[in-house]
């Protein structure tokens, strides 16, 4: 093998700056997408459990649509197809005037896709609560909304912290697809460094290490959340 090792290239101008900028885009696009995924996922997940066929049906349809189409296809649809399908004025705005179009599109596509997966976790969390507890809360005089607000949601969100951690990590990894529509996030920047310097091994190793670092930070934070929210006297952390 005749490979010219040069780790120092990663710390040279402008390549270090590219990596930092890529990291910035990866983190910001992922965090924004996660907020979208969490809010919409929670609503859709709750919607699937309510006693109303229309609402639960619509929420099920959402999950089946967004969960079953490849994320890359969804990204392309949002970026290339939707602006052509909406009324001309809106389409024109999306193509010409929408601020940071690659960023915004990724947040929407990744957020809505991940929401379908979060919704399933939320639904599973709510379904795992014994029926008797819901009956007791109703017997105590709580209204349907109050039963969700004070009993079902606080308990189910605690239960689903571990699977939600996995979803949160997946958002960071999936954000790399944004390079296909031109967002210069971490993977795109690594690719660019490889193209400019021919040190592709070093460039992608840098990306790998940074992704792992992000993942470890997120995992650590979520473990703190898990410990802080643990219910005293129940098995698991903090018991």
């Amino acid at each position: 093998m005749n490979y010219n090792w040069n780790w120092a290239v990663l710390f040279q101008d402008p390549y270090l700056g590219w990596l930092i900028s890529g990291l910035g885009w990866t983190v910001s696009v992922s965090l924004c997408a996660w907020v979208v995924a969490f809010v919409i996922g929670a609503l859709i997940g709750v919607g699937r459990t309510v006693n109303n066929r229309l609402i639960s049906g619509l929420c099920t349809a959402y999950v089946e649509l967004f969960r079953n189409v490849p994320l890359l296809v969804q990204l392309f649809v949002w970026y290339f197809a939707i602006p052509e399908m909406v009324p001309d004025g809106v389409g024109h705005w999306m193509k010409r005037e929408m601020p940071m179009p690659e960023f915004t599109t990724t947040v929407i596509a990744l957020g809505l896709y991940t929401a379908s997966r979060v919704a399933e976790q939320v639904r599973a969390g709510i379904d795992s609560i014994p029926k008797g507890l819901k009956a007791a809360a109703k017997a105590n005089g709580l209204s349907g909304t109050q039963v969700y607000r004070y009993i079902l949601l606080p308990i189910s969100f605690r239960i689903i912290v571990p699977p939600l951690t996995s979803e949160f990590l997946t958002v960071f990894k999936n954000s790399s697809l944004a390079l296909t529509i031109g967002l210069l996030e971490l993977t795109a920047q690594s690719q660019q460094i490889a193209d400019y310097t021919y040190n592709s091994f070093e460039a992608f190793t840098a990306a790998t290490v940074i992704y792992i670092f992000i993942a470890l930070v997120v995992t650590g934070l979520m473990q703190i959340v898990e410990t802080r929210t643990a219910i005293p006297g129940q098995s698991g952390k903090g018991a």
Partner: peptide
């Protein structure tokens, strides 16, 4: 206005 007590207690665990 009606109290109810269940076989499995059903206290709010959190």
């Amino acid at each position: 206005r009606i109290g109810m007590v269940f076989q499995h207690f059903e206290l709010y665990p959190h």
